[in-house]
Simulated assay, not measured.
Amino acid sequence: MNSVEQTKLLLNESSLFYIITTDMDGNYSYVNQNYAKEFLHINSNFVGQPYHITMHPDDISTCLEVSTKCFEHPGKLFKAIIRKHDGEGDYIYTQWEYKAMFDDEKNPAGVFCLGHNITKYIAEQIQLKKAIEENEKKSIIIENIVFQQSHLVRAPLSNLIGLTTVFLDKTLLDSDTSYTCQMILESTRQLDEIIRNIVTTART
């Protein structure tokens, strides 16, 4: 019994892995129980059916490319991610390793494929990517806020503090005006301190 047949026998009832083989015409020659059960909504008997009936049309070229590499490099495994119909109008993601099969006379006999479902992993990767992109957007916003606070807002505020100080230096101001200027100066200083704290916090 060759290694392909041994693997098929060993993993025929696997609940984690898919095993399929195709002949040189691109038709299924074997599927294990897990694959048959997972894609029962497509066909009740895959043997003799075209290999591509389960997959996303855009992934057919990937499958052909990887299969070609298998025969160009006999004995080597080649990876591929293939989307498969889920029976609900969408697709699941599956990852495969392909290997060329040969008969006893060393003639090409088909392709052996071992795969598993990676939909959850892909979903987590997509979610992580979105989170990173969102974080980058927020970082840009924070940088813009820091710039506006430290340059655009504080510049006129500093001018206001300076002008108020000049007014207070004038001895001709009456007491009411002087008191008002002192209140303006105190308020602007407090606002300046708040802006400084915002900038410092945003940068940490």
Rank of each mutant, 00 (worst) to 15 (best):
M1S: 13
N2E: 06
V4W: 15
E5Y: 07
T7G: 01
L9I: 10
L10N: 08
L11E: 09
F17D: 07
T21L: 05
N27E: 08
N27C: 11
S29A: 11
Y30S: 11
V31R: 05
A36H: 07
M55W: 01
P57Y: 14
D59A: 00
I60M: 05
I60W: 06
T62G: 02
L64E: 14
C70F: 01
K79S: 12
R83S: 06
D86T: 12
Y93R: 00
T94V: 03
Q95W: 02
M101E: 13
E105M: 10
K106Q: 10
K106I: 05
N107A: 07
N107D: 08
N107L: 08
N117P: 04
I118Y: 03
I122W: 04
I122S: 00
A123E: 15
A123G: 03
I126M: 07
I126G: 01
I126L: 07
L128N: 11
L128G: 06
K130D: 12
A131N: 14
E136I: 15
V146M: 05
F147N: 06
Q149D: 09
Q149M: 07
L152N: 07
L152K: 09
R154W: 01
L160Q: 01
L163S: 02
T164A: 15
T164G: 03
V166G: 00
V166Y: 01
D169N: 14
K170M: 09
T177V: 03
Y179S: 11
T180W: 08
C181A: 14
Q182P: 05
M183Q: 10
I184Q: 12
E186V: 06
E193T: 10
E193W: 05
I194C: 11
I195P: 08
V199D: 13
T200V: 13
A202Q: 13
T204F: 06
